[in-house]
């Protein structure tokens, strides 16, 4: 079990996986020290392309490399990696169905002090809306390493959402990540929380607080946002009285919508609350401060659980 930022786990996984697989190439847009792709670049300089601060050029270059049989990891701060190149991603990657992995680090309010222009809260909405694109956000170090490996085996476009701050270990090495599969992290009763990314850790803190009041809920990790694990969502929603989703992202287009769509399609009617950014830009401050002020902290999750379970 290992604690640490998911971006660090990604950087290390690339170095290890790159040793055996010459198809792996990595591109960055001038932030390789922060995105951790530099580790790969230091080890395999001939397969690392720092394209400078030019994300649109980078993602199309990655698409070109992919057409020659490479597995291209285009890495950068999510805000700019996606924000500067939506059209390029749509045409040269999603529509062309090229084997490019878009790796966006520094996501959500967890980014903190750099402010709203650096806090990516719309990326899952962007990427979920694109045909051919899958969306994965790992919860911890172990899952990041395994998901990086799975992305190499998966042929097609993908968005990999990583975070800046250190997160606690959720899984040990017995965990088996699979694209499209959620995982029950902790089994409780009454209510199920579907969480993704850093919010899995935050939910566990909330659950510890709730356990002191004898409230035991279920926590499910949804690391593949698209295609979402419909079966597990339906099974869990059906077997609990209430549903909460938790994500460090705007409440439009992310996990809440992904889970909600499954429930609507399956005509499952449950108490449903979304822990997410409430369609607003935040401000500067530390990640934990922003989580508290903008409704994402363990306190907010615990309160939402209690509100959901309160008799009508």
């Amino acid at each position: 079990m290992k604690d640490g930022p998911t971006r660090d786990a990604y950087g290390q996984a690339l170095v290890e996986l790159g040793a055996d697989d010459p198809r792996i190439v990595v591109l960055d847009a001038g932030v390789s020290d922060s995105s951790r792709s530099k580790k790969f670049g230091d080890k395999y300089p001939e397969r690392f392309f720092n394209m400078g601060i030019a994300e649109a050029d980078m993602v199309c270059t990655a698409a070109g490399l992919a057409t020659t049989g490479k597995i291209a990891f285009a890495t950068g701060f999510s805000c700019f990696l996606l924000g500067r190149s939506m059209d390029q991603i749509l045409v040269s990657i999603a529509y062309s169905n090229t084997n490019v992995k878009l790796v966006g680090t520094h996501t959500g309010l967890a980014v903190g002090e750099d402010g709203p222009s650096a806090q990516m809260i719309v990326d899952m909405a962007y990427m979920r809306a694109m045909p051919n694109m899958i969306v994965i956000q790992p919860a911890d170090w172990e899952e990041t390493v395994q998901a990086t490996r799975a992305l190499i085996d998966y042929e097609g476009p993908a968005y990999f959402r990583l975070g800046r701050p250190k997160v606690k270990a959720i899984f040990d090495s017995s965990y088996k990540f699979e694209i499209g599969k959620g995982r029950v992290v902790k089994k409780g009763s009454d209510l199920v929380i579907f969480a993704t990314g850093i919010m899995v850790q935050e939910s566990l803190v909330a659950m510890e607080m709730l356990e002191k009041e004898n409230i035991n809920v279920t926590l499910v990790n949804i690391s593949t946002l698209k295609p979402i694990d419909r079966e597990l969502v339906i099974e869990m929603a059906t077997s609990h009285k209430a549903v909460i989703t938790a994500e460090d992202h705007n409440y439009i287009g992310g996990l809440g919508d992904a889970v909600g769509e499954v429930l609507l399609d399956a005509q499952i009617s449950k108490s449903f609350k979304r822990i997410a950014v409430r369609d607003q830009f935040a401000e500067t401050g530390t990640g934990p401060e922003l989580f508290e002020k903008y409704g994402l902290s363990a306190n907010h999750i615990a309160q939402a659980v209690k509100d959901s379970l309160r008799p009508a």
Binding site: V25, A56, M58, C60, T61, G64, L65, T68
Partner: peptide
């Protein structure tokens, strides 16, 4: 940009 990616890929090969 795409063409350049291809140019780099074939050179790598």
């Amino acid at each position: 940009s795409v063409g350049h990616g291809i140019a780099m890929g074939t050179r790598l090969d």
